[in-house]
């Protein structure tokens, strides 16, 4: 392996920690009339739970 860290840094459309990344979800939400950062933050929090569910089924259960 030339750069042993490369697999950890490799860009991915669905990065570790996400199931539906915010840029993808944003396209589906239409006009954002309020605080987009707040929407993004809370979206990513719950998305992280769904990621945890999937991968803990693999790793833990």
């Amino acid at each position: 392996m030339s750069d042993p860290y490369e697999p950890l840094r490799r860009p991915h459309p669905r990065p570790a920690g996400t199931v539906v990344p915010w840029p993808e979800q944003r396209k589906d939400m239409g006009e954002m009339t309020g605080d987009e950062a707040l929407v993004r933050k809370t979206w990513e929090e719950i998305d992280a739970w769904s990621y945890a569910f999937l991968w803990h089924c693999v790793v833990s259960f």
């Binding site: 697999p7 950890l8 490799r10 991915h12 990065p15 570790a16 920690g17 992280a48 945890a52 991968w55 803990h56 790793v59």
Partner: peptide
Amino acid sequence: VKAMMPHMLHIALS
């Protein structure tokens, strides 16, 4: 195995 690496790291750190 390489594709698993970022996910194992993320689960560990999270």
